[in-house]
Design a protein around this nucleic acid. Structure first.
Lengths: 138, 138
DNA sequence: ATCCTACAGTGGACTTTGTCTAAGTCAAAC
DNA sequence: GTTTGACTTAGACAAAGTCCACTGTAGGAT
């Protein structure tokens, strides 16, 4: 996704080999890697990249709004490069596989004022759980 | 919630001082404690209780379906004793306060077959995010 | 009431995930 | 080519949770 690299450069992001590699790893549909997985893949392209740099870079990408953090379980956070189209997630309860999904309807509208307890509600996150075809079949 | 203790005993759960204390700590509405918070409160009632026991007991309560695990952020899991009425959560993005909420509608019905990728979808979890009155006002 | 024993609890080491820091390096402006 | 401040690094540290070998005890059997 050189688009991403272009956008980042345009925003004054200083380009380095490490950042380029991280951006390259986070490329595609239905990509939901943990920080350590990103690091593992980055190392194959740039062996001396450090864990701290991967964490820093992911954090910056999240701040810039180019990548979303996803917390589907209590384990590691995952990073989702599909930040430009709003979506929710479908998670396999057995193997942890994740798909991006686009439900109909607007769950924000389903929360009546009486259930808002004075909160200013600005966002909603929906996680569907079930079994993926592989785990359901086996 | 002696109901809970009764139910557990009825299921053949061996009753011990430690388990009783953990069950007592997890009592009430809008209770969403982390394992460490549960431990901290349990210690005031039973000073020698160990962290491992609290984790074990919480895990068992979750397996028994008496308590729900809630992962609202990347930090510690929280434990929600309100397992018998389905509900979702409203979380303050600033201070982390959590309320149980009951939206209208059924988000499960909002996921068309074409968006299920062959998964057997059995559950959905909705997390609303925003600012609580205190954090919005300040 | 006492004994037994399988199940429960304990503390501490260990693992995983993530953060911080001091010192070295390098991209980009000049 | 120099300069400079932002970027990277390695490793120490921290928080949350798991594991394990040993000890203790609830509750049934006697």
């Amino acid at each position: 996704m050189s688009d991403l690299l272009e956008r980042l450069r345009g925003r004054g992001w200083r380009m380095t080999a490490q950042r380029r590699v991280v951006a390259e790893v986070l490329n595609g549909e239905h990509v939901h890697l943990t920080a350590d997985e990103v690091h593992a893949r980055a190392v194959t392209k740039l062996p001396e990249i450090s864990r701290a740099t991967v964490y820093n870079t992911l954090g910056e990408l999240v701040s810039l709004g180019e990548v979303l953090e996803v917390t589907t379980d209590k384990r590691a956070k995952r990073y989702d490069p599909n930040a430009h189209r709003p979506h929710h997630h479908l998670v396999c309860a057995r193997c942890g596989a994740i798909r991006d999904v686009h439900p109909t309807g607007n769950p924000l509208a389903d929360l009546p004022d009486t259930e808002r307890f004075g909160f200013t509600v600005s966002d909603v996150e929906v996680t569907y759980r079930g079994l993926c075809p592989d785990c359901a079949g086996a």
